[in-house]
Write a protein that binds this DNA or RNA. Structure first.
Length: 430
RNA sequence: CGGGGUGUAGCUCAGCCCGGUUAGAGUGCACGGUUCGGGACCGUGAAGUCGGCGGUUCAAAUCCGCCCACCCCGACCA
């Protein structure tokens, strides 16, 4: 993408409305704009990051055999009457009526719908097991939205639902999703903890929350400094697993997995016939990831005084080419490099705006693109280009003909280093 | 929903207490010129229902009342 033709409205100053770090940065970097309290429009750069996270999620979900589907956001009252949740206060349901007087709710979650589908379509034990997921807008009418996308009323969520014929298999499904979630949040570059949680309005037998460590988080927990054990706030003084010291930390709930048992299949009588022709109720699990909230958490954990520092895999662009002056050769070289990178399948942004160098440097830092390629009259005369890493601001001079190859090498290096950090973090926590 | 705060140009804010010229600044935007490696400089210009409605007054951004929106703390929160 050429910056000249893109809508990336960066801001020099922090908007008054934003206090939380991720909120300020997502407004300043031109990722999103507020429409009303808790309602955001995702601008081009913002939706790109969201799509990146979604790609990771789809990839990991499908590794564990989950299939994507898409359900409606408007749901009829009747289904909710059957599950007994129509008057549930906890979900913050926004209810509405159409012209005929039929009542609906703007989906806060989809257990009722998915179970309704499965009831009609999966009649035999041979149809099981399966796991269905969707990525979709959810609406919860929060009393008080806050911290930008950390607590919004409308947000994007991945929700998955597993169906198994037996309890053991359901546990396996749950364990698989737990693994998938660990992979997902690692690939997002997040530092997170898993804590046992209260199933709350969802009901069921067991649930665990994935909490991204963040100062602006609303969840408080006690986490072991020596291993990865963590628990709800008012818990033990020392870690039961390793005897390490427990410290109080704050975090953002980015994921929540539930082993639901047969609560919904029973309530909505989703039955199947076993090999003996006997009616049985499937065991369910449901698994949510707040995608927009995950993006906020990534920003909370990855920034410096200059702006966002996207982990490579979620970055809206991998590379930004900064064309520093308007000289013909500089413009031509920048275009050429932009083409070369594009041909290699590298998502590149070309800053060809008629702006001064400082503006381009600052914007590139603010929007957090991992690799900056700086092209200027000065370097062209030396047959060189400058390559800068956003995270540590380290600049390298490389011969022009090797530029594309060097970018590819650095991208690979960043990928491996990311895996290394993951492995190390994981090891430390063991 | 309780408590606190804010609302003046796209954005950040001054002016309000103590009513009185054509309502200001910075930034952004447009145009011209000089610049050109870390948010340049000079000049010109466009841009405002002063959140809304009502009241007091000769006169309201400014005082009073009601309402609305947004932010923060709390209650609530998959």
């Amino acid at each position: 993408m050429r910056w000249e033709r893109a809508l990336i409205p960066t801001l020099k100053e922090n908007p008054q409305e934003a206090e939380a770090l991720s909120h300020q940065l997502m407004l300043r970097a031109g990722l999103a704009r507020k429409i009303a309290a808790g309602l955001y429009a995702y601008l081009p750069l913002g939706i790109k990051v969201i799509r990146r996270v979604e790609t990771i999620i789809r990839d990991e979900m499908e590794k564990y055999g989950a299939q994507e589907l898409l359900m409606p956001i408007l749901q009829p009252r009747e289904l909710w009457e059957v599950s007994g949740r129509w008057n549930d206060q906890e979900l913050g349901m926004l209810k509405l009526k159409n012209r005929e007087g039929s009542e609906f709710v703007l989906a806060p979650t989809h257990e009722e719908i998915i179970t309704g589908i499965v009831r009609g379509e999966a009649r035999s034990y041979k149809d099981f097991p399966f796991n269905l997921y969707q990525i979709q807008t959810k609406f919860r009418d929060e009393m008080r939205p806050r911290f930008g996308m950390i607590r919004a009323r409308e947000f994007i969520m991945k929700d998955a639902y597993s169906f198994d014929v037996g309890e053991e298999m359901a546990r396996k499904s749950y364990a698989d999703m737990r693994k998938a979630y660990i992979n997902i949040f690692r690939r997002c570059g997040l530092n997170f903890r898993i804590v046992e949680a209260d199933p709350g309005a969802m009901g069921g037998e067991k649930s665990e929350e994935f909490i991204a460590v963040a100062e602006n988080g609303e969840d408080v927990l006690a986490a072991c400094e020596a291993c990865d054990y963590a628990t709800g706030a008012d818990a033990a003084k020392k870690c039961p697993d390793c005897g390490g010291r427990m410290a109080k930390i704050k975090g953002i709930e980015v994921g929540h997995i539930f082993n639901l048992g047969r609560k919904y299949s029973k309530a909505l009588s989703a039955k199947f016939l076993d090999p003996n022709g006997k009616e049985c109720l499937p065991f369910m699990g449901c698994y949510g990831i707040g995608i927009t909230r995950t993006v906020a958490a990534i920003i909370e954990q990855n920034s410096d005084e200059k702006g966002i520092i996207w982990p490579l895999e979620v970055a809206p662009y991998s590379v930004v080419v900064l064309c520093l002056d308007r000289e013909e050769t500089t413009v031509a070289e920048s275009e050429q490099l932009y083409q070369e990178l594009g041909d290699k399948g590298i998502e590149t942004l070309l800053d060809n705006r008629d702006e001064r160098a400082g503006v381009k440097f600052n914007d590139a830092d603010l929007i957090g693109i991992p690799i900056h390629l700086i092209i200027s009259r000065k370097r062209i005369s030396e047959q060189k280009v400058e390559m800068k890493r956003r995270r540590d601001q380290i600049k390298l001079l490389i011969p022009r003909p090797e530029a594309t190859g060097e970018v590819i090498r650095l991208l690979k290096d960043l990928k491996e280093r990311h895996r290394g950090t993951e492995a190390q973090r994981h090891k430390e926590h063991k």
